[in-house]
Computed example of a mutant assay.
Amino acid sequence: MGGIRDGYPKLLPLLAGLLFAGLLAGCGPDAGEASRRHEPSQVLADNQAHLTSSINRYGPSVRIRSKTPWRIAFLMKNFAWASPYWRRTHEGAESGSKEMGTFVRVLGVDRFAIEQQIKQVDALIAEGRTDGIIIAPLDSNRLSPVVEKAVASGIPVLVYDTPLNADHILTFVGFDNFGAGRLLGRWMVEQLGGKGNLLILEGPPGNQNALDRRNGMIAGLSEGDINVLSMGTANWQRHQAEAITAEWLQRFQQVDAIMAADDVMALGAADAIAKAGRHNILVTGFDANADALLAIRTGRLHATIAQAPKQQARRAVQLMVRHLQSGVLFPPALLYDSIHLITSENVADYQ
């Protein structure tokens, strides 16, 4: 039976066989490259077939036009100019605003500025001019009191992107991070032929999205005989991911793949691999940012997940408008589960 193993890879004393294989290969791919799949991915094909057969998996397809120019505040985790993901979120919120005839005020904060986000919510409550709040909380616990304060003051709150441990929120709109991580893990098992040595770059400790992605990856990898050499957090930072990967590459002689919980860290891993002169290491990310898609085209990265922030943000605005217009209530969570796996086979469709 397959499964994830922890520890160092075993060295096989087959020097004569390796020398013979090298002579046969000449200048061709090395042994690891030769063992990898080059035919079309069945995991990718199954994923695309699932997307094609799924109809209206995420809410109604009807367009909504607001009867009142509601004033909605959309609080993001970062500024649009500072993050490709939040730039696309901003675009989705604005497109939803124009389409539905309502007013959406998009607010960003400095990276990890939890207190700044708390003050934003307090300011909206004090102003008394906001009909609804959509918030992507920087912390799943520390934002809870101020969000509950907003709800108590009569402002409905919809939580976006990251779960929040708060009572009486309208709903949570997010992505199926666990399912997406599992899909990436299954793809990796396929690409490695069922076995290999792998490293995982995680997001910030305690971040629910990061945990779900990592746990999903591990679930997918468990379908093969994968040796997870180490896991480390790079806090969504490229330079931290590069430093961690550089240390890993010095410590481990045989590395077949590195899976990162977002594209930024994946690119940091690719930077370290290039500087170390190592080859034949698969690298996956998450988010489908433009620079990651280009890196897949050039072979620096090998797979990512399209998280569809524009569609999710538009949907969040739509739900808030529906609630403000008719008082309709929603399930506690509405996960966006149209998971798009992107590899060199289909990356051109997403650029």
Score class of each variant (00 low, 15 high):
95 S>Q: 12
176 D>H: 14
119 K>H: 09
162 T>S: 15
139 D>Q: 05
66 S>W: 03
47 N>W: 04
164 L>N: 13
171 T>R: 13
182 R>N: 12
103 F>V: 14
68 T>R: 11
62 V>D: 03
138 L>N: 13
90 H>N: 07
50 H>P: 00
114 I>L: 11
164 L>T: 14
82 A>H: 10
55 I>D: 04
156 P>M: 13
153 S>H: 13
106 V>G: 04
174 G>N: 13
128 G>Q: 08
134 I>N: 01
72 I>Y: 02
162 T>G: 09
60 P>K: 04
162 T>W: 08
153 S>A: 15
86 W>L: 00
127 E>W: 14
50 H>S: 06
72 I>S: 01
180 A>R: 11
154 G>P: 08
121 V>H: 04
50 H>I: 02
174 G>P: 14
72 I>A: 01
165 N>S: 15
121 V>L: 10
133 I>H: 05
82 A>W: 03
110 D>W: 05
174 G>Y: 11
90 H>Y: 10
148 E>V: 06
54 S>Q: 13
168 H>W: 11
46 D>P: 02
117 Q>P: 04
149 K>M: 04
123 A>W: 08
105 R>I: 03
94 E>L: 14
159 V>S: 11
49 A>E: 11
99 E>G: 10
65 R>E: 07
70 W>V: 01
45 A>N: 03
56 N>T: 05
140 S>M: 13
57 R>W: 10
120 Q>S: 07
72 I>M: 05
68 T>L: 01
72 I>C: 04
135 I>F: 06
